[in-house]
Design a protein around this nucleic acid. Structure first.
Length: 268
DNA sequence: GCCATTCATAGACTGTAAAT
DNA sequence: ATTTACAGTCTATGAATGGC
């Protein structure tokens, strides 16, 4: 008895691909998947089009203004203003953010494409390793596997992705829209904090957590999501979570915001 | 025009499962 | 064993809207 897509508007069959944890709807035009893809694409960490979240994504799809993520880059202020509850302030903000999104680093674009098993970290390494989307798209399985943290499964996914008809169309559309597809290869991690792993918990007063992470990264540190034995230092902001306990358990070095600021200052 | 209400999003944390 | 993806939840903020 095949399982059916939970989206009543779809009804496609749901199967679990070999070696995958989750099941997916096989219908290529599954509305639920289009929605997921779009919201991921515009979400934080990806193209980061602020003002365009789940609700607007649903409306844009419903109206047919957007059929795939690349269509977002062709939206106009006038089209947006026709939508209910959309005013000039929001419309301007969204248009400006769409424009800004064209200049996001390659790693963000790669992450936004939504290749399975390619999260922000893998996207980052691939972007650094190959330097352009075309280089990644043209890479063979072996070249991909040569990249750290990429094994046969991920390599196959990436390889297969860029050979999909639909994906190629989307990428061509992105190119026409003027979305940036190259990036300079960052020098392999060096800097005063090279080889050290930082983790941030809680809220910082002077900057967003993501900014703190970016600045630490710029100094050569790598950033972790959770405290492990390899973590060099935990930066503790306001309202720390369970990471703090773990760090105390491991005896990891702790750092408050003032110390972090001093560190960022002194190593400039 | 101003103010209160409603609504969506950003930003943050947590826990789980899978890949390396 | 460690890292990563991913889904779910909560709070604060800011915009649109509608009543006055």
């Amino acid at each position: 008895m095949p399982r059916r897509c939970p989206d009543p508007a779809c009804g496609g069959e749901v199967v679990r691909p070999e070696g995958e944890a989750m099941s997916y709807c096989v219908n290529p035009s599954c509305p639920a998947q289009a929605f997921r893809w779009l919201t991921h694409f515009v979400g934080r960490g990806a193209m980061d089009i602020e003002g365009l979240g789940e609700q607007w994504a649903a409306v844009l799809l419903e109206r047919g203004l957007v059929k795939d993520p690349a269509d977002v880059f062709f939206l106009t202020r006038e089209q947006l203003l026709e939508l209910e509850r959309m005013g000039p302030v929001l419309a301007d903000k969204i248009v400006a953010n769409i424009e800004a999104a064209k200049k996001r680093p390659l790693s963000r674009l790669l992450f936004a494409l939504g290749i399975r098993h390619v999260g922000s970290e893998i996207a980052d390494t691939l972007a650094n390793e190959f330097g352009s989307l075309d280089a990644i798209a043209g890479a063979g399985r072996e070249a991909l596997e040569g990249v750290p943290a990429v094994g046969p499964k991920i390599a196959e996914r990436v390889y297969g992705y860029f050979r999909g008809e639909r994906q190629r169309r989307v990428i061509e559309k992105l190119r026409r829209a003027g979305v940036r597809m190259e990036q300079e290869r960052a020098a392999p991690t060096e800097g005063p904090l090279a080889g050290q792993t930082f983790v941030v918990t809680g809220t910082l007063a002077s900057m967003a957590r993501s900014e703190a992470e970016a600045r630490l990264k710029a100094l050569g540190a790598s950033i972790g999501n959770s405290v492990t034995k390899k973590t060099t230092c935990l930066v503790v902001g306001e309202g720390p979570g369970s990471k703090l306990q773990k760090a105390q358990e491991y005896g990891t070095k702790l750092m408050d915001e003032q110390e972090l600021l001093r560190l960022l200052e002194s190593t400039k």
